[in-house]
Design a protein around this nucleic acid. Structure first.
Length: 421
RNA sequence: GUGGGUGUAGCUCAGGUGGCUAGAGCAUCAGAUUGUGGCUCUGAGGGUCGUGGGUUCAAGUCCCAUCAUCCACCCCA
C-alpha cells in the first residue's frame, strides 16, 4: 500500500504555497506596524501546560490532544493552541520584568485529533497575537482591530464580529448559579452532553445548539446582568473603544468559547462560504492564565485565527492572487558544447539576479522551446556550435516572437533591459 | 465518538438490468523533413477498477468487511 499523508494533514505546494507566503508577509508587515514581535515556541510542550492552561474539562484536553511519552518517560503533547505556550515563555523568560506591555505574535502549526471536515484538519495553522501586561479594554480593542486589519489585507470582506463578556472569578460563580437554577427544573430533559456541562462547566450550556435544549430554557439569564462592577465597566468601555475605532459588532450572549482561561471579553470572527466551520478567528481576555502557568498575576488578551480558513475565504473572495515565479530566460543548449555553455550562462544570469533555467535531461530543441513556454520564460537563448563559434546566443522574445543574436557578455544586460526597463 | 455520500489512468469523469483484450477529455511523451514554443493533426506510455473476502460458469458492475476521502453532528481555527 502506498504511503499517504496522515489523515487530516495535507501538503501545501506550488501556487498555494505562494499564497501562504503572501499571507505570512502581510502578517509580519502588520505586526511591525502595530509593534508586535514574533515568538516561535516549540511544536511540543509538557502535557501539563495544556491541562492547566487550557483546562482539564475542555474538549481539547479531554479528547483532542496528540499526547505521548517520550523516551525519557515525559508526557509530551503536540500543541493544540499557542496561547498557553506563549504565556509559558513569557514566564520562563521573565518578560514581565521588561518595560510593559509585551506584544507578541506567532504563526505556526497546531494539532488536534478531530474528525476532518470542511475547514478542519488535524494539523492546521494559526496566526495569533497576545497583548500582555495591560488590563485596559483598549488592549482588547486593539487586538480585535488588528485582526480586522489583517483580514482586510487578505482581501476578506464582510467579517462578522461576535462579542461577549463572561465575567471574572469574582462574578462568574453567581452567574453560573443563576444558569444552573434556570436549567435545573428540566435537568432530566437535557441532552447528554448538557447534563455533563451542567456539572462541569455550566457556561457551556449556552453553547448547545440542540433545538430541544434551547426550547427548554429559551431565555437563559444573560451574563451582562451578573457582571461585577469591574467587569461591567470593562465591557462598557470596550464597546466604547470599538465604536471609536469604527468596529461594528454584534453582542452574542451565548458566545462562551471552549477554553477555560478566558475572563471578561470573548469574541469570535465569522465569515461566509466556509460551510459549517465558519469561525475564522476568535479570542478574548485571559487575566488568570499567566498565574496559572506559574507567573505573577498579569492581565492579557489575545486572538488566534485559522490560516487554512483565512486562505480559503481570501481565495474565494479574490483577495489573494495566485501566481508563480517565472524564469526571465531559458537557456536552450544544443549538443554537448551548447548544453555546457547554457548551464554556464544560466548561472551567470543568476549571479546578476536574473531567474534563469536550463536543460539537464537532454530534451530536443523543440521540446526545450515547449518547456520554456510552459515555464513562462520571457526569453529563450539558443546556443549551439554555430553560436559558440561566433560568441553569441540566438535570443528569442517569446512574447513578441522575434529573435536576434546577442553576445554572451551582453546577455544579462539584454535580458535585464527588457524585463526591468 | 455518531451519521450520510463517494472511492475506475497524474487530474476530472463515462462505464443501463454482472458477460469477450476497461474508455473519454485534460495532462505527459513522441512525431507532422534538416536547430525553434503557443494553434491544429497523428500516435504512444500509463489503470492488480481503494483493499480483503464472498455469491456466480462469469464482477468495475451484486453482498459483507475494512481502509481512505468528502460532508454533517460535536467542537472549534
Amino acid at each position: 500500500m502506498e504511503i499517504t499523508a496522515p489523515r487530516g494533514t495535507r501538503d501545501i505546494m506550488f501556487e498555494e504555497a505562494r499564497l501562504w507566503q503572501r499571507a505570512e508577509e502581510a502578517l509580519r508587515q502588520l505586526a511591525d506596524l502595530y509593534g508586535y514581535s514574533e515568538i516561535r515556541t516549540p511544536i511540543f510542550e509538557h502535557t501539563e501546560l495544556f491541562v492547566r492552561g487550557v483546562g482539564e474539562a475542555t474538549d481539547i484536553v479531554e479528547k483532542e490532544m496528540y499526547t505521548f511519552s517520550d523516551r525519557g518517560g515525559r508526557s509530551i503533547t503536540l500543541r493544540p493552541e499557542n496561547t498557553a505556550p506563549v504565556m509559558r515563555a513569557f514566564v520562563e523568560h521573565n518578560m514581565g520584568a521588561k518595560a510593559q506591555p509585551t506584544k507578541l505574535f506567532y504563526f505556526g502549526p497546531m494539532f488536534r485529533y478531530e474528525r476532518p471536515q470542511a475547514g478542519r484538519f488535524r494539523q492546521f495553522h494559526q496566526m495569533g497575537i497576545e497583548y500582555t501586561g495591560s488590563a485596559s479594554p483598549m488592549a482588547d480593542a486593539e487586538v480585535i482591530r488588528f485582526s480586522l486589519d489583517y483580514f482586510k489585507m487578505l482581501g476578506i470582506k464582510q467579517v462578522k464580529v461576535h462579542l461577549n463578556s463572561i465575567g471574572c472569578p469574582d462574578c462568574r460563580p453567581r452567574y453560573k448559579e443563576a444558569l444552573k437554577d434556570a436549567y435545573r427544573p428540566n435537568l432530566e430533559s437535557l441532552c447528554e452532553s448538557c447534563k455533563k456541562r451542567f456539572e462541569v462547566n455550566p457556561l457551556r450550556l449556552l453553547d448547545c445548539k440542540s433545538p430541544e435544549c434551547r426550547a427548554i430554557v429559551p431565555d437563559p439569564p444573560e451574563v451582562e446582568d451578573f457582571l461585577c462592577g469591574d467587569c461591567l465597566e470593562h465591557f462598557t468601555k470596550l464597546k466604547g473603544c470599538l465604536k471609536a475605532l469604527g468596529v461594528e459588532y454584534v453582542k452574542d450572549p451565548r458566545l462562551v468559547r471552549g477554553l477555560d482561561y478566558y475572563t471578561k471579553t470573548t469574541f469570535e470572527f465569522t465569515s461566509e462560504g466556509l460551510g459549517s466551520q465558519d469561525a475564522i478567528g476568535g479570542g478574548g481576555r485571559y487575566d488568570g492564565l499567566v498565574q496559572e502557568v506559574g507567573g505573577a498575576p498579569t492581565p492579557s488578551v489575545g486572538v488566534a485565527c485559522g490560516m487554512e480558513r483565512l486562505i480559503t475565504v481570501a481565495r474565494a473572495q479574490g483577495g489573494l492572487e495566485v501566481d508563480s515565479a517565472k524564469p526571465v530566460a531559458y537557456l536552450a543548449g544544443l549538443g554537448e558544447a551548447g548544453t555546457a555553455k547554457a548551464m554556464e550562462l544560466a548561472f551567470k544570469l543568476r549571479e546578476d539576479g536574473l531567474a534563469a533555467e536550463f536543460d539537464t535531461i537532454g530534451r530536443s530543441l523543440k521540446a526545450q522551446m515547449k518547456y520554456a513556454d510552459k515555464l513562462g520564460a520571457r526569453f529563450v537563448a539558443i546556443i549551439g556550435d554555430e553560436e559558440i563559434a561566433k560568441g553569441v546566443a540566438v535570443v528569442k522574445d517569446m512574447a513578441e516572437g522575434n529573435q536576434l543574436e546577442v553576445r554572451f557578455d551582453d546577455l544579462a544586460q539584454h535580458v535585464q533591459r527588457a524585463v526591468r526597463p
